[in-house]
């Protein structure tokens, strides 16, 4: 499901609200979450999970192709921790999930 699929589904379940308005609301939800994270704020959605920004220290890495050492600057990375309810929902589900043996990776 993509964001537009999500908007469609929300619109389908709320027939009294126009699809245009639904789209604005969905965008506002994610925009306000991004803004909170940008300010370093933690987000907690009960029953869903929490998002937090952590600082990754600068380190010396290596170009995996050439073996050449490269400097990797410190950066802020968002982390998601799944909530208990959603964790249990996902684990007890019957659907077909993508297998860990075949992770989707963009080919270089």
């Amino acid at each position: 499901m993509t964001k537009s699929g999500l908007i469609e589904e929300v619109a389908r379940r709320t027939p009294h609200i126009s699809k245009k308005d639904t789209e604005v609301v969905v965008n506002t939800i994610f925009d306000s979450m991004i803004e909170a994270l940008r300010q370093g704020e933690r987000i907690e959605i009960r029953g869903f999970g929490s998002f937090q920004v952590k600082l990754r220290e600068a380190r010396e890495g290596r170009n995996p192709k050439t073996g050449e050492p490269v400097h990797i600057s410190a950066k802020r990375t968002p982390f998601f921790k799944v909530g208990k309810e959603l964790k249990e929902m996902v684990d007890s589900s019957e659907g077909t999930a993508s297998s860990s043996d075949a992770p989707e990776k963009a080919s270089a």
Partner: peptide, 12 residues
């Protein structure tokens, strides 16, 4: 919105 995301993920 969160309900739909959860249901979708629960379906894998």
């Amino acid at each position: 919105v969160f309900e739909i995301i959860k249901q979708t993920l629960a379906e894998g």
